[in-house]
Amino acid sequence: MKVKYILIFLCFLLLSYKAFALEIIPLRQLFEQAPNYDGKNVTVKGEAVGDIMGNGETFWVNIRDGDFFIGVVLDSEKRSIIKNLGRYRVKGDIVKVTGTYKVQCPQHYGDRDIHAETLEIIEEGRRLEETVETDKIVLSIALGFAAILFIFYSHHRKFRKDSGDQQN
């Protein structure tokens, strides 16, 4: 009977520990309540932006969740999962990452990071269309003509003044 209670208690502890890994935690929360999550297994989601950097076995990708960012450490297998990185006219893949969160990672000289254990794409990124506003083109042409006219008139006036000075 006693063993049964101990087992239930241990299961409860394990579940509460793993609970961080099951629910998606906003990055804001990871920053504002950092000590609560430090060294724990967490699940976060965000848009992969910029570049995947690194060589050999370890790679970095930065993910963005609202105004918050974090570096995620990946192995080469997980690296190949990400296809679209957020840039100009590109919406990056929205990834769900589960891994160990370190506020001051001793392995990476104090970087704040998540060492990914699993990574999956929950929303594929895509290229976005660029629209060119014709109003701007019309305004540019008008300004260009006006500027050329002013420059021409300015030179003409200077030329007339110089020739007038010479005649006097």
Partner: peptide
């Protein structure tokens, strides 16, 4: 180079605005 047409137009527009304002000032204060 990066095929960013709309941003390029923004810079051309801004540059021409500078040319316009600059020539206006140089015309008046020559």
């Amino acid at each position: 180079i990066n095929r960013e047409w709309d941003p390029s137009i923004d810079f051309i527009l801004s540059s021409l605005l500078c040319l316009f304002l600059g020539s206006l000032l140089l015309l008046r204060f020559n």
